[in-house]
């Protein structure tokens, strides 16, 4: 029985090892080609770089230069961090208000927030770009309130779900002790929201960091984010695309995500499960 089970587990292990390799293969292929000269990628993509095709970090140098990768990276970082902070801050406040003040008005707003979660972006894309451009929100900092608007549906929903389970007595005690609503929220309520705040931050960060269409339409190719930089790098005059530099760009785009993932894996997986199960 025991050895039978060990054999079965061994087979499962080999099976999973095989599929892990298959899963990693696309990334391996990109890394491999990022070290080959640009003339040897399209013709023989599977070949390991040899002394004729190996170009060291040349592709990385070119990739960074041809796409302004560093400014794009910094822009994406500013937009992501700024938007996530703003979203966590304002949607937790909004959710608390909605849960604690029961009126037709807050109920309507809450259902509108929920409703926005099912509406595909293309539905509001054209008119939203028109309005936001009129309001001057088509800049690196201007896009942050736009992300607040689009991120508030799911975030308010997650916060409100959590706040409904909080005991009212703690807040009432704080208020009786003379705390105003603002102090009560920040000193008493917000610290209790931490687990949901992490989930909300991670889900929004993953979305905003990788988002393409919204920054492409609002910021264009002047203030490009990472996704935009990668997309437009392939739109150059056909045939003259530096595929070596492009492979290096892809690798550089993946690295920060992998590092972030390896450090925050526990929170990311929890966040994704919470977001899916409640959303």
């Amino acid at each position: 029985m025991n050895s039978d089970k060990r054999i079965k587990n061994g087979i499962t292990f080999v099976f999973l090892l095989f599929w892990s390799t298959v899963f990693l293969f696309p990334i391996y292929l990109v890394i491999l080609n990022s070290f080959k000269s640009k003339f040897n990628i399209v013709g023989s993509p599977f070949k390991f770089p040899d002394k004729d095709t190996f170009v060291g970090i040349e592709n990385y140098v070119n990739g960074i230069r041809m796409s302004d990768l560093i400014p794009s990276f910094l822009r994406t970082l500013i937009i992501t961090v700024g938007s996530v902070l703003v979203i966590v801050f304002f949607t937790s406040m909004a959710a608390w208000f909605i849960v604690r003040v029961k009126s037709k008005f807050t109920k309507t707003i809450y259902y509108l927030f929920l409703f926005s979660m099912i509406v595909p972006f293309q539905m509001v894309m054209f008119t939203m770009v028109y309005i936001c451009t009129k309001l001057g929100l088509n800049s690196v900092l201007g896009i942050i309130p736009v992300y607040l608007g689009f991120g508030s549906g799911m975030s308010v929903f997650l916060f409100a779900g959590f706040i409904r389970g909080l005991p009212l007595e703690i807040e009432e005690a704080a208020m009786i002790d003379g705390c105003g609503p603002i102090r009560t929220f920040f000193t008493v309520v917000f610290p209790m929201l931490k687990p949901t705040a992490i989930t909300v931050a991670i889900l929004n960060a993953m979305w905003i960091w990788n988002d393409f269409l919204l920054p492409y339409l609002l910021l264009g190719t002047q203030n490009k984010t990472l996704s935009v930089a990668i997309q437009i790098a392939t739109q150059g005059a056909y045939g003259s695309i530096d595929w070596g530099g492009f492979m290096a760009m892809l690798v550089l785009a993946i690295i920060p995500i992998v590092i972030f993932y390896l450090f925050c894996q526990k929170y990311i997986i929890k966040g994704v499960i919470d977001g899916a199960v409640k959303g």
């Binding site: 304002f90 949607t91 406040m93 909004a94 608390w96 208000f97 909605i98 604690r100 003040v101 009126s103 807050t106 707003i109 509108l112 927030f113 926005s116 509406v119 509001v124 054209f126 008119t127 939203m128 028109y130 309005i131 936001c132 309001l135 309130p145 736009v146 607040l148 608007g149 689009f150 508030s152 549906g153 308010v156 609503p181 603002i182 929220f185």
Partner: peptide
């Protein structure tokens, strides 16, 4: 709490109306 509507609900609701409801 209700009196604090401009502080708590306004920022999220306003941006939501501008980028979602009106469009």
């Amino acid at each position: 709490i209700k009196k604090y509507f401009p502080v708590f609900l306004m920022p999220a609701a306003l941006s939501f109306f501008i980028v979602f409801i009106i469009p």
